[in-house]
Amino acid sequence: MVTRGELFAQCRGLIALRDEESADFDTTCIFQDMLGEKFPMFAPKEPVPDGKAAEILSLAKRRSEGYPLQYLLGQWEFWGCNFRIGEGVLIPRPDTETLVEQVLDICRREGLTAPKIADLCSGSGCIAVALKKELPQAEVYAVELSEKALYYLRQNTELNGCGDIRIISGDVLKSETARQITGLDVLVSNPPYLTAQDMSELMTEVRYEPESALFGGEDGLDFYRAVTELWKSSVKSGGFIAYEFGLGQHDAVKAILERNGFGNVELKRDGGGIIRTAAAVKALSL
């Protein structure tokens, strides 16, 4: 029977062959999940039952082949909340917390304690849940097309005590979906924004994520053009649209918003200093 220390070294060595920098973190996450302990290596000489050791080693092998750690664990943290995830739904990323921060900044500034919010392309529901947690009186809608993603979205709203989020199964690029929600204070979205070139250069890990949640057309801006045009009537005068986007797309997204009658565009940088989100207000005359 192998000890925890011996098994850890074996698993770390496998993962390090692919990514030395993340090997300690990834191995620790696998041990925490499989052994159900926050600090599993406090007892390095503790024996690991053969069956459990085989399971842990199998996960390490899959990780060494490029399979996403988040999918291996079946869960990931975002905004201090736990989200169940798996193949078919986009993995929540820290960059997206910038979008949540920007929406909350707007609500505080505008005195919106019970805003009507729609999260488009909701995926795992991480944005919708984070906003509902911070704004418990808000009326929050989460719109998603993918059945696989809806499966996780429904689980995550319940898991995080946000069962009153109104989930809509629909295509955000169709007018009949947009007509279902009107009078919005805030429309928020992290839509697909990778370009054709981006898609051809994806890391192995990202290739496991759903293409429908990644690819935004040849220039990555298809959703911004279509969503802004289709949904602007759903946003009340003086209401806001807030978007996340990719590196270097801020000027194009700003122009799309302005062409559709949204002004005072505010850009916000993520933790890495990249301009990651934009928010704009709908002109009162529209």
Rank of each mutant, 00 (worst) to 15 (best):
G238Y: 02
V206P: 00
Y243I: 04
G220C: 03
W231K: 13
L187I: 05
L194G: 07
G217S: 09
S212M: 15
F215Y: 14
F223D: 11
A242K: 03
V206K: 02
G217I: 00
V235Q: 01
R207Y: 03
A242V: 10
F240M: 07
P191M: 04
E201G: 10
K232M: 14
T204F: 02
A252T: 08
S237K: 15
F215K: 05
D251T: 13
K254R: 15
L184W: 02
G239R: 10
G248E: 11
V235G: 02
S200M: 11
E229A: 15
T204Q: 15
V188G: 00
T182K: 15
D222F: 07
L184S: 08
Y224P: 05
D198H: 12
V188K: 05
S237D: 14
S234W: 03
G238H: 03
W231F: 10
S234L: 06
A213E: 05
V235D: 06
Y224G: 09
V235I: 13
G217R: 02
D251C: 11
M203W: 10
R207Q: 09
E209G: 07
V227S: 07
D251E: 15
L247T: 09
S237C: 14
S234M: 02
L230A: 12
L194N: 05
R207I: 01
G216K: 02
L230M: 13
P191A: 10
T182R: 15
H250P: 00
G220H: 09
L202E: 09
G220M: 03
Y224Q: 08
Y208S: 00
V188D: 05
F240H: 13
S200T: 15
E244T: 05
D251F: 11
G248Y: 09
S200D: 14
K236I: 01
F245M: 12
G238K: 12
A226D: 14
T228C: 12
V227T: 12
W231Y: 11
V186Y: 01
D219G: 10
E218M: 04
V188N: 05
K236Y: 01
G246K: 07
Y193C: 07
A226I: 13
Y243H: 02
L221Q: 06
M203S: 14
Y243G: 11
Y193D: 06
S237A: 15
A213R: 08
G239W: 06
L194T: 08
T228R: 10
E201N: 15
R225Y: 11
L194H: 04
G183S: 09
G238A: 06
G239T: 07
F215S: 07
V227K: 08
A252C: 02
K232P: 08
S233A: 15
Q249D: 00
I241W: 01
E211N: 13
L194W: 03
A252S: 13
E209W: 02
G216R: 05
F245N: 06
D219N: 13
A213L: 06
N190E: 10
L187R: 04
Y224W: 03
A226Y: 12
G248I: 10
T182L: 14
V186R: 05
F215A: 12
Q249A: 01
L221V: 04
Y224M: 10
E209I: 05
H250F: 03
E244L: 08
T204H: 08
L187G: 02
L221C: 11
M199E: 09
V235K: 06
F223T: 01
D198M: 10
E244K: 03
G239E: 09
S189D: 06
L214I: 04
E211S: 13
T204C: 14
Y193W: 12
I241L: 13
